[in-house]
Write a protein that binds this DNA or RNA. Sequence first.
RNA 1: GCCUGGGUGGCGGAAUUGGUAGACGCGCAAGACUUAAAAUCUUGUUUCCUCGUGAAGUCCGGGUUCGAUUCCCGGCCUAGGCACCA
Length: 803
Amino acid sequence: MTYNHQEVESKWAKKWKDSNLFVCNFDDSDQKFYSLFMFPYPSAEGLHIGNYFCFTVSDLIAKFKRLQGYNAFCPIGWDAFGMHSENYAIKIGETPQKMLSRTVENFRNQMIESGFGVDFTKEVDTTSKEYYKWTQWIFLKLLEKDLAFQKSSLLNYCPSCKTVLADEQIENGGCERCKTQPEKKEMKQWFFKITEFGDRLLDGLSDMDWSDITKSAQKNWIGKSKGAEITVKVDGLDKELTYFTTRPDTTFGASFITVAPELKDVLDLVLPEFVMQAQEYIAVSGAKSDLDRISDNKEKTGIFTGRYAIQPVTGHKLPIYISDYVLANVGTGVVVGVPAHDKRDFEFAEAFNLPIKRVISKDGSDSKISSVDDVYTQDGILLNSDFLNGLKVSDAITKIGEYIEEKGFGKRVTNYRLRDWCISRQRYWGPPIPVVHCDDCGVVPVPESQLPVELPEKLENWEPSGDGKGPLANVDEFINVPCPKCGKPAKRDADVTDNFLDSSWYMLRYLDPHNDSEIFNVERIKKWMPVDFYVGGNEHAVMHLMYVRFICMALFDLDLLPTENPFKKFRANGMLLKDGVKMSKSKGNVINPEEYGRKVSFDALRTYILFLGPLSEDRSFSEDGILGTRRWIDKIYKLLEKVEDKYLDSDDLLYLYNKTNKEVVIDLDEHKFNTVVAKLMELTNALIKQEKISKEVFEGFLVMVAPFLQFLAEECYSQLGNTDSVFNASWPKLDESKLVKSSIVVVVQIAGKVRAKLQVSPNITQEEIQKLALENSDVQKWLDGKEPKKVIYVPGKLVSVVV
RNA sequence: GCCUGGGUGGCGGAAUUGGUAGACGCGCAAGACUUAAAAUCUUGUUUCCUCGUGAAGUCCGGGUUCGAUUCCCGGCCUAGGCACCA
């Protein structure tokens, strides 16, 4: 009896799809389980193994929950707007619409043949009018709430992608997509005020059941720092400067002030005789990219302005310098230099021969700071600091904070690294920004009733032009519209929104994908949200996952969501490597799921990649390894011959069967798929040793195996005479009474080493077992006549004899 | 530099309210079946030695404990995030 996987798998894949087996009925929400994976952009290459892995995890959890009696929902959709698709379409000389209809079809078919239990009837496509109408609606809602605004600022402009990039899209100083170094351009763009949610985004993390690695990335990205803003007067000028510091306690150690070269009106600070040099310095540093400035950080450069600032607390006159180690967009763009307690300030002070005064030391004693290594940044006691002397750092921070506020010298503030989300893109392939610019009325939102603002379909020259305007600016019939307010000729916004906006609410639309009168039915959303389990790559830790949280907070505030956190549980999956190295097309080591489906079966592939290791860790795929899961399939299939209707299974088997059941449930809820597979394999090995197996136990076993070896389980279940799907069966009932053993093994340790094993009744008393242990001949030999000092008994486990 | 993870056989990895280290799988070796091979089945597989009722062993060095992969202190390596962030 050999198992023909190709025949079996294609048969059931078709049946599952045709019978709508995995279609979810939303009306039944008492025991709902929403399992979600990060939806893909349908690339031309088809289903990538990384996608396949992530889908498998979500699908497996959904199937498990379904078997446990939950109404499980596992949807699919296409994140098809954005530069991925647009750039590829440009490359192959096709329009994105045309290309996508083909690639989506391909993706869908691959998912069906892999046996994914996703509900295709709830499919969502971010590029459809029915979807992006509501993406635009969200924009309008945020505009209404003052969370969307236009701002002109220095932005990162990618000359290759021909659009501005969000801060999050800069990686190691380059564009995350094409690695091109972005140019700084002054442009007027739309932003979402994500910074207003900085604290909520940060505080929310603490009680979220998300991967630590993801939470840590978000925390670092938000970059909250507490400190103080202190205002200093510029001597001889009617001008003030405000600097931000996290260490106001070091105020008495300040010896200079530094301002960023890009700071507005910086030249006003400079004395006439220094202006020439200053202009030159500003020009030179302005020509450097951020990356250069960071990499040339060996030596501190700068220029003296000739001016001094009066520090209000100390009354000291501090020289003002311009230096490019200070960045205009960080804090206030003005920094106070405390060389004794900051390495950068020390380097600067050394280069410019400025005083270095210690104001903190471990025990309050003074000693000279003569090299960078002496710079003292730890906790300690204040000295040389007037009214702060003798205080601990934390107390000094509190005291001076109160002091400056009382005297009006400054205030305590919280700073964030997080920047507002720039959402304008000068591209074609996205939802047009639904506003009209009118000479008389200014920015006028498109009325809701006129949504969607349709992206023109048949368009010549839809590629980005690179002139800083989106390609839509040249489409007259699109761009020229009457102002919705006054009716005079006006122009639409020519930009489209960032792709990340599309994906920041898709999990909501899945729950009501065909609703054309509202974004979704709020009642249903409140029953089905949050998503119970979300899985995807950690490369989305800061962008996608931060934006989703932001959008959901905004929608929550509009009373459209039951919680502000959309994902009850999120797990980042590790990367799949091939023989220990990263897969890439250029290396030619890309794993194609279809190929392995054909060779060894989708069941074996699916189970193998889960068996490789813990979900969060990178795992290494090998050609040989996958044979192990394929062998497992064959072993189970052969067991069919042993199944007998009313067979009485042995106690030992029933013990293992129930123990496995119990442990598998626990491990699956903790997503420890590798150990679940190991335990099911162990049970399989025990079943192989049986003469016969009862139908009841074998069917229960098939149900436990079904989330992994889905096609095999269905086939065996059907061969046993069942007409319904194994996925309509229920999880086997746990029989606790079978988990009690008639005898247990207790080990005896002498000086911490195992020297004997005793087979005893589980109800044995401490006295009895101690007596047995000490009488044991092996124990006697090891004791060698010595008297035990102490005997420790761990019930059911061991006896430890101390000599 | 700061913030998160991780470090266990030839390999992927199991085991934590501190209690038999190496489950499960891969690979390898030997045997069975076969004319032969593949497949399959059986057995073995942490290392070392003087082969035993032996010793050592979970990145390294200390500590707590009858007992430490697990807890504490110090260090090394590694993956990810942030970074002249003031």
